[in-house]
């Protein structure tokens, strides 16, 4: 299955990845080859097979709503590329 250049550009945008022209070319052909290999799954009839999302028999794990200490604000901001004394500073979102 050949992935078109438009598709690669669309996937890159959804993935929030800027790609160079060479990368578009390279990933296009590599992903096409990998997806060709994955076509193998269509040999199997899975009409009545339930999907497995994970193997544990667990769902809706609940806990009591107990107050626990939070991470202090200055620590929470310490790893940010840019911040004020109270907030993360991010590029302008609304024009």
């Amino acid at each position: 299955m050949k992935i078109s250049r438009e598709e690669i550009e669309h996937i890159a945008l959804l993935s929030r990845l800027y790609l160079s022209e060479e990368e578009k070319e390279l990933y296009g052909s590599q992903l096409s080859r990998i997806l060709d290999y994955m076509e193998k799954l269509n040999e199997l009839d899975t009409k009545d097979v339930e999907p497995t999302s994970h193997v544990l028999p667990l769902c809706n794990v609940m806990r009591d709503d107990i107050l626990r200490p939070s991470i202090p604000k200055e620590n929470a901001l310490a790893n940010a590329p840019d911040h004020t004394d109270k907030f993360y500073r991010v590029p302008k979102i609304i024009e």
Binding site: L17, I34, L35, L44, T52
Partner: peptide, 28 residues
């Protein structure tokens, strides 16, 4: 990057059933 794009493709509109759901069924 390759894996993010492959995964994004497999989950994107129109392909979810053919790839992700199918893979989960084979997982079963």
């Amino acid at each position: 990057k390759r894996r993010i794009m492959l995964g994004t493709y497999a989950l994107s509109a129109g392909y979810y059933e053919a790839y992700y759901k199918k893979a989960q069924q084979v997982r079963t």
